[in-house]
Each structure stands twice: as structure tokens, then as C-alpha cells.
């Protein structure tokens, strides 16, 4: 099971942060060539990320957020970065399937040029406008390279003309539609960043909320946020125990050729079994469960 609980942004023009980016335990690091880089330093960030990726063996998935291909920087970003084979290209401000298809073709050409395995470079898209949300499924399904959709918070809020609230009601529509689009396409849904890094209480509340909504992970901007997200996404012992008992009851009913399964008086049907299987697979992937034992 591929985990993308945390996708940590790393400013592309900061050598110290680039070099140390792999040590904090994020599932994915995203080297940023876009919003965190001044217009006058786009070339410098591109060279820095290229050389860091060429010489450092990062222990996690490495993504690069390029500038959009409608800017003067996007194509040059792709040409430079694809030569060092990122795991993932993240397109910001995605609004149409055509954006994704064009980048897919450029990646295909780069894979041939550099002798990389065809299809080995993945893509994800950040949706940051109402138009992008409306086209979310088409964007998600535009290429077999697509592995995730993310919602880009601040631009999205500016586009729909609202602002942040404590309980996140401004994101209800966008998050809801993005999750449905991602799940229908069979890819990950990633939530936006929480920029107030000193406000741990609200960060925990927001992360808990988006996990319950169905998001597979969250973009983070500070290493301090990583363990908090991972802890929230780790199944509890109680959840693991329940999942084990659901599966045991289901298997027992199969052995008895019984059509009806129940546990503690509650009926268990196939979706409940599937959820239990996912809980155990997830617990296994995060190192909390192995061979029938909770670790």
C-alpha cells in the first residue's frame, strides 16, 4: 500500500532545506519551484533542485512542483527536472484535462530521451480554482500517470472569494468534490497546507477532520507537522482489534457456509469486511501490525 500521509513542501532555492529534506520522515517531499521561489530566482532554484536530486539519494518519494506551463517557466522546469527522474511531477493550478495530457506527453518524450522506464514518472495535480474543482474528475482521469489530486487552499479561497475559518466550512464544497473525483478515479486525495505552524491544536483538529472526510494525506510546510499527521493516520489498537475480529467472524461464517455474519450483535456485510481489511493493510503499511500481531 502506497502511503502519502504527508507531502512536505521544500523551497527550491534553499540549499540547507533541500539537503536535509529527506531526514524528517515525510512520505513525500515536494521540491518547490513555484510559489516559494522569487521570479528573479526561478533559474537558480531549477539548477539547485536538479543538482540536489542528481547527487542525493532521498529515502522517500520525491516530487517537484513545477510552475504552470502557461507561465514562462513551466516548460524549462520540466526539461531540466525530468532529466533527473523525479518520482512525481506536481502541476499547480490545474484547471483542465488538457493541462495534464500535455505534460504527460512531455514526460513520455523525456522518458524516451533519457532511457527511463516508460510510465515510471508519475503526476499529481493541485486544484486551486472553482473551474478546477468542476473539472476535477476529468483532471484525475486524464492520464494513467496521475496518482493524486490535491486542493491548494489559499488560491482556492481567493478564487471563491472567502477566507479561512476555524472549522473549515469554507472548504466543505471544494474538499467534498475533490475527494469524490479522486476516489472515482482511484487515486489519492491530498488536503491543503495548514500554515499556522505554531497552532498545534487547530492543526490536529483539521487533520482529524480531513482524515474522517476520506483524504489520504495532507500537504505540510514544516517538519514538526509530520509526526502529528502520521499519528492521526495510524489505526489505533482498538481499531486493529475490531478489524481482526470482523475478519475472523467473516472467515468463520464462510467456513460454516452461513449467509449471515454478525459480531457482538451487529451485522457484518461485505463493505464492513472490506473496511476491516483496509484497516489491517494500512496498519501493516505504517508498521503497526504484522502477521496477525499489533506492534
Amino acid at each position: 500500500m502506497k502511503l502519502r500521509r504527508t507531502m512536505m513542501f521544500v523551497p527550491g532555492n534553499n540549499p540547507g532545506m533541500l539537503i536535509n529534506a529527506g531526514i524528517y520522515g515525510a512520505d513525500t517531499i515536494i521540491f518547490d519551484l513555484e510559489d516559494s521561489v522569487a521570479l528573479s530566482e526561478k533559474d537558480a532554484a531549477r539548477h539547485l533542485v536538479y543538482n540536489a536530486m542528481k547527487s542525493i539519494n532521498y529515502p522517500c518519494e520525491v516530487a517537484v512542483r513545477i510552475n504552470h506551463i502557461s507561465t514562462p517557466f513551466g516548460y524549462k522546469d520540466l526539461e531540466t527536472i525530468l532529466a533527473v527522474k523525479p518520482d512525481l511531477i506536481r502541476l499547480p493550478k490545474a484547471e483542465t484535462a488538457a493541462d495534464i495530457k500535455e505534460i504527460d506527453e512531455l514526460i513520455t518524450a523525456a522518458e524516451i530521451k533519457h532511457g527511463f522506464l516508460p510510465g515510471s514518472i508519475n503526476m499529481m495535480a493541485a486544484i486551486e480554482t472553482a473551474k478546477g474543482i468542476r473539472n476535477a474528475y476529468d483532471i484525475a482521469a486524464a492520464s494513467p500517470r496521475m496518482v493524486a489530486l490535491a486542493i491548494g487552499g489559499e488560491d482556492y479561497l481567493a478564487d471563491i472569494q472567502t477566507s479561512r475559518t476555524k472549522d473549515g466550512k469554507e472548504f466543505f464544497a471544494g474538499r467534498g468534490q475533490l475527494i469524490l473525483a479522486a476516489k472515482e478515479a482511484g487515486i489519492h486525495a491530498i488536503d491543503t497546507v495548514f500554515g499556522d505552524v505554531n497552532n498545534e491544536e487547530d492543526f490536529i483538529a483539521e487533520t482529524t477532520r480531513i482524515k474522517e472526510m476520506g483524504f489520504d494525506g495532507k500537504s505540510v510546510v514544516n517538519p514538526r507537522q509530520i509526526n502529528i499527521v502520521h499519528e492521526i493516520y495510524t489505526p489505533t489498537e482498538k481499531e486493529i482489534d475490531h478489524a481482526q475480529r470482523v475478519i475472523a467472524a467473516y472467515e468463520e461464517s464462510l467456513a460454516r457456509k452461513s449467509g449471515v455474519v454478525s459480531l457482538n450483535g451487529k451485522m457484518i456485510d461485505i463493505p464492513v469486511v472490506k473496511r476491516a481489511q483496509r484497516t489491517l493493510a494500512y496498519a501493516n503499511a505504517v508498521g503497526k501490525y504484522k502477521g496477525g500481531e499489533t506492534l
Binding site: P15, A44, N51
Partner: peptide
């Protein structure tokens, strides 16, 4: 205290410019 990859990157940028 730059690593080799940083020195290379900064040289490439300076040369381009």
C-alpha cells in the same frame, strides 16, 4: 559551507546569467 551539488548549481546559474 555549501555541498558540491550546491556549488555546481550556483555556478551553472551564474554562467547562464
Amino acid at each position: 559551507g555549501a555541498l558540491d551539488c550546491t556549488i555546481r548549481a550556483r555556478m551553472m546559474t551564474a554562467i547562464d546569467r
